[in-house]
Computed example of a mutant assay.
Amino acid sequence: MADTQEKDSAEHGAGKRGEARKAAKLAKHIQAFSGRHGGAEGQLAHLGQAGTRIVLVGEDGSWGDLVAPSHDIAREAAEKAGLTLHDTFDGDLAAKVETGPYEWSRMAGIQIGGPARA
């Protein structure tokens, strides 16, 4: 029984280190996005078993996203990066997003069954 407990403890420790590495890597991506766009804010959106999406909105209106394997890792990455998080993607955060012709044609193509550009 002691052998099993030691093995479980070692695997748990390795798992926590792996999660910390993933969070650190995501934090670097968040910081890079923020640096390119004059700062950034974000929101965490659950994707179910796929993980959690980190939606990023730059001060210049640019936007992007990253996917973390879990909500805890996404939150840790956001905290490490100093990202201001919003509870929802509406109001002031949504108003900052600037869309261009590509996004409008893509959305219209999806909505009306027209051609969507890749």
Results as ranks from 00 to 15, higher is better:
S105I: 14
G15D: 09
M1T: 14
E6T: 10
P69M: 07
G48A: 05
G109H: 04
M107K: 13
K28Q: 15
E41T: 13
H86Q: 08
K80P: 05
A23M: 04
D60N: 12
R75S: 10
A20M: 04
K96P: 04
L26A: 01
E11K: 11
G51A: 07
E59S: 13
R117W: 06
G100F: 15
E59G: 06
E19M: 15
L56P: 03
D65P: 02
S105Y: 11
G82S: 05
G38H: 10
I112T: 15
G51I: 07
A32M: 09
A95I: 08
P101M: 11
E19Q: 15
A2W: 15
T4Q: 10
E6Y: 14
P115E: 13
G39W: 12
A27I: 04
H12D: 04
H46W: 10
A2K: 12
D72H: 12
K96H: 02
A40G: 03
A32I: 07
G91V: 10
S62C: 07
A81V: 00
G48H: 08
L56R: 02
K22V: 11
G61M: 05
Y102I: 01
R53S: 10
L66T: 07
A68N: 02
I54C: 01
A2T: 11
M1N: 13
A24R: 11
Q5P: 01
Q5L: 14
G113T: 02
E98W: 07
A81Q: 02
V55W: 06
P101N: 12
G113Q: 03
R106T: 11
M107D: 15
W63C: 06
G39D: 05
A78Q: 03
A94I: 02
E98N: 10
R53H: 03
K22P: 02
P69L: 07
A40W: 01
D92W: 03
A45V: 15
V57A: 03
W63D: 08
G113N: 01
V67Y: 07
G35K: 09
A77Y: 00
G39P: 01
G39N: 01
A77Q: 01
R106P: 01
G13D: 14
E11R: 12
L26E: 00
V57Y: 00
A74M: 06
I73W: 00
A20Q: 10
A118M: 08
G100L: 11
T99C: 05
L56V: 07
Q5V: 12
G113K: 05
A116N: 08
A118W: 05
G48Q: 09
K25F: 01
T52P: 06
E19G: 15
A116M: 13
G13V: 10
S62I: 01
A77H: 00
H12K: 13
G42D: 03
G100M: 07
Q31R: 14
W63M: 04
A32F: 05
A68D: 04
D92G: 12
R21P: 04
D87H: 13
K25D: 14
W63Q: 08
G109K: 00
Q43L: 09
P69W: 05
A81L: 00
K16A: 09
A24W: 02
Q49N: 15
L85I: 03
R17K: 09
G38F: 11
I73S: 03
G51M: 08
A74C: 06
H29P: 02
A27E: 04
A23K: 02
K16C: 04
I30D: 02
H12A: 08
A77K: 02
S9P: 00
